[in-house]
Structures are given as C-alpha cells and as structure tokens.
Design a protein around this nucleic acid. Structure first.
Length: 363
DNA sequence: TAATCGTGGTA
DNA sequence: TTACCAAGATT
C-alpha cells in the first residue's frame, strides 16, 4: 500500500453524494452523462465559468440565459459588437472579463475553426482563461482528468487535510492534493461535486459536517474545528476616495454620457461625466469641477464599495436649456438607459439625480 | 509576489 | 452595521 493511498480518500463517496444532491444549473448536464457519451456544450461551460469567476450562481443565472438567447453559439458571440457585449454584461462586474470573453470567442472562431480546444493547455492559452477555468472546462466539457481548484475546493481541501499554511501561499500544495484526489473516471462530475460540496455542505461558516461524504476522512473535523480553515493572510484596509458626478438633463429628456477608456477600472464602460476619484475631499467634489458651467444643484451622495476602495460620489444635477455639442460624449434619452453599458455605480449616480431613470432603482 | 479589478447577498 | 465572500485573471 502506497503513502498516497493511505493519505488520499476515495472519490467514490463524493460522487455518490453528488449523484443524489447535485445542484441543477442551466449550464449543466445530469451527473454521469459523460460516461454515456453525452457531454456538456463547451460554449455553455466556458460562458458559465467566466461569468462565475468571483460571482455568485444567483447573480449569473439571468445573465447566462440572456447571453445564450442572444448569442447561441460561440461564433455568434465572436461576430457581435463589443459594445453590445459590454452592455449585456453591465452590472455583473469585473468588466475585463467581458472584454476577454469577446476576445476569446474571436480566437475560437477565427483560429480554432469555431471549436474550443479540448485540452487544459489549449484552453489555458485563450484570453480570460486562467488555471481554474482551463481545468474546469477541460474536465466538465471534455472529460479530462484535470485538477480543478476554485475557492470552494480550497476550503474543502484545507479542511480535509487540516492545512495550516495560509492562502494564497498554500495553493500549490492544495493543488497537488486535488490532483491526487481527482479520479480518471468522471473527473468533470468530481470537480462539480467538490464545488457543490463547498457551496452547500463545507460552507465558510457553520459547515454541515454530519452530512459530508468526507466526514470520516476530514482531519480538521477530527483534530480541530473545520471553521478554522482555510487560514488566510490578513487583509488590507480599504481607503476612501472622493469625487463628483454630473448629470446634465435636457428639456427633451436626454442626459450627457461618455465612454471610459478601455483599460483600468470600469474599462470601456459608459459613464456620466465625473471628476477624478481622489483620496481627499477638496475642490474635486464641488460643482466647480463640472465639465461645463450650468446651474448645478446638489443631489446627494452615492457611496459605492469597490474591491479595493470605497467611493463617495457627490451628485450634481442641472437642467440644460440648450443642448451643448460635446465631442467627448453623447446625449442619450433617459428612456434608453437600460440599453447602455452602465456599471452599477453609474446607475446609482443617475438614479440619485433622476429617481425614475430606472425601473429597478433603489433610490 | 502583490495590486488591480465589481457587485450583491449574508450573518 | 460591518465584514466577509462568490466557479479568478491579468499585470
């Protein structure tokens, strides 16, 4: 008997658990189908995996359905207008994902004959596909024995082996454990089972260990408290930045919009004119920083929390009698804002100035 | 390696 | 209310 066998639980109890308790999701096929020659559509798997990066299943579902309805095949997405893709992605966050999604679709359509590469290495070379997504698509869509490790799997593995090394330093060791656990038979189901286990049983808080197929093998459960794992490096404090946003409204109900540069925060997305977002309260939050002179009226403050800073945006509104010609933007009817590539912070800013701009406005 | 990059839900 | 975090990738 090898050390590997002594140290590595069987995947069988997990697959049995998955057969009974798997989540039904729009991009999935039923468990065990791969063995009968029925594989998930690589386009659907890839699209869902990119959308699910750092994003909840609940948030992804409606976006996934809309994308699939509008662009049923990867070649359809490749042929789409980038602005249309950005507008469809608006609200989902991490907008570089949308730009890379489009680039990836184009690469598949133009350089791979419209067919996704069926190996982890081939997938990994495409835009927006990193270690996790390459392994996930390879395993789920192509039945490859790839080691799939996301945040769920990290949590399960860290507990199963009581790994005391903090993340992200522990990742390579964890990946090795996943590779040893991943079976040659049903690797795609195994990957999805590990993620479902992490999402529903081996949760960050109050895990349901009594229902876990690994309860007999889990070192954290035996030696310590599973909730103490994974150990993570301390997080940095979020700084606060300040700025102002300007909503200019014409008599016939149009507002001034412009396009952000392709790189960086909210890259390529649509915005109302704003100042730079600086670390201190100063003149940049006042009407003096507006793109042009008008009777700017204070319309409150919008607070929005990004990944690495908090933004406090002073909102200014002005009624514009004569539409000023702008070469750095365009006038858009308020009735057509839903079709724009407006990130959530911009919808909040507009809603603060024009409460009825969006049906779903939370004021 | 560390910083950057959104948003909404939950306890 | 605050803190955490959810199927990470890129630079």
């Amino acid at each position: 008997m090898t050390i590997t066998t002594l140290d590595t639980p069987s995947a069988k109890p997990l697959l049995d658990w998955y057969d009974r308790h798997h989540r039904d999701l729009p991009w999935r096929v039923a468990p065990g189908m791969a063995a009968r020659g029925v594989k998930a559509d690589p386009y659907r798997v890839w699209l869902s995996e990119v959308m699910l990066q750092q994003t909840t299943v609940q948030a992804v579902k409606p976006y996934f359905e809309r994308f699939l309805q509008r662009w049923p095949e990867v070649t359809d997405l490749a042929a789409a207008e980038t602005d249309a893709v950005m507008a469809a992605w608006a609200g989902l966050g991490y907008y570089a994902r949308a730009r890379n999604l489009k680039k990836c679709a184009e690469a598949v359509a133009n350089e791979h004959g419209g067919v996704f590469p069926d190996t982890e290495e081939g997938l990994r070379s495409l835009p927006g596909i990193g270690d996790y997504t390459a392994a996930a698509v390879a395993a789920i869509a192509f039945d490859r024995q790839a080691a799939v490790m996301d945040g769920n799997v990290e949590r399960v593995i860290s507990r199963l082996y009581a790994i005391a090394t903090p993340l992200p330093a522990a990742k390579p060791a964890m990946k090795q454990k996943v590779a040893l656990l991943t079976p040659a038979d049903r690797p795609g189901d195994f990957a999805q089972a590990m993620m479902d286990l992490g999402a529903t049983i081996c949760t960050p808080k109050r895990p349901a260990c009594s229902l876990c197929p690994f309860r007999g093998a889990c070192k954290a459960l035996k030696l310590s408290d599973p909730e103490l794992f994974p150990v993570k490096a301390a997080k940095k404090e979020k700084p606060v930045r300040y700025g102002a946003a300007f909503i200019a409204v014409t008599a016939d109900g149009e507002i001034l919009l412009r396009r952000r540069v392709d790189s960086g925060l909210l890259g390529g997305m649509t915005e109302v004119p704003t100042t730079a977002w600086t670390a201190r309260i100063d003149g940049e939050t006042s009407a003096a920083a507006a793109p042009f002179a008008a009777a700017w009226q204070a319309s409150g403050t919008v607070i929005h929390v990004f990944t690495h800073f908090e933004l406090r945006l002073s909102i200014w509104r002005a009624a514009i009698a004569t539409k000023i010609d702008r070469n750095d933007g365009w006038w858009e009817p308020v009735t057509n804002l839903e079709a724009q590539a407006l990130p959530t912070i911009m919808k909040k800013a507009i809603a603060a100035a024009i409460p009825l701009a969006f049906k779903t406005s939370k004021g």
